[in-house]
């Protein structure tokens, strides 16, 4: 079982808490930063799982393996770094797309959720016509949530 130094444990803890804090924000840009920081934390932890710093794990033909670092966590971290990198790029693109479409990059509320919460009674009775709260002609099924009467976007509420 590998143990790590206190300083590194603290660094990992700080990275995780900062990362998760940012992940909980509404702005996708902060979420992106959160993912980056959290990814660093996870990769650092993965590195530390290999034990304390040691000689580079390169066999130079002498067959001398004493004091070599564990190469596996390094390989794992390398893979994880690449994956995090790809996700960062993707999130950037998504944030940009959101900015183009809605003018900001904040994650908004689910309108269908709100609408169900606002219904006074659960209209579970079968076959009954359900009265409408809003006039909804021409609902695009791809955006059923958008068909509500003006539950304003979160940006306006806040």
């Amino acid at each position: 079982m590998t143990t790590i130094s206190l300083a590194m444990a603290v660094v990992v803890a700080v990275l995780y808490s900062v990362g998760f804090y940012l992940l909980l924000q509404r702005s996708l840009m902060r979420v992106l930063l959160g993912v980056v920081v959290l990814g660093h934390g996870a990769n650092l932890l993965l590195q530390l799982a290999g034990g304390p710093p040691a000689r580079p794990p390169i066999l130079d033909g002498t067959g001398d393996t004493a004091g070599l670092a564990d190469p596996l966590p390094q390989a794992l971290a390398l893979t994880a770094v690449v994956i995090t990198f790809a996700m960062t790029t993707y999130l950037l693109a998504l944030g940009y797309r959101s900015w183009v479409l809605v003018g900001h990059d904040e994650v908004q509320d689910d309108l269908e959720d709100r609408r169900i919460a606002r219904r006074r009674t659960v209209k579970a009775s079968m076959g009954e016509e359900v009265e409408e709260t809003g006039d909804e002609v021409g609902v695009d099924p791809g955006s059923a949530a958008a068909s509500d009467d003006p539950v304003t976007s979160t940006a306006d509420v806040r």
Binding site: V31, V35, G41, L45, L46, L48, G50, P73, S98, D110
Partner: peptide
């Protein structure tokens, strides 16, 4: 955005699990 954020969080949690299991 909701889906991606949640999935990323769980992925990073998974990575943490892998690191701890390896350690």
């Amino acid at each position: 955005m909701t889906y991606v954020t949640i999935s990323l969080a769980s992925s990073l949690l998974f990575l943490t699990t892998v690191a701890l299991v390896y350690a």
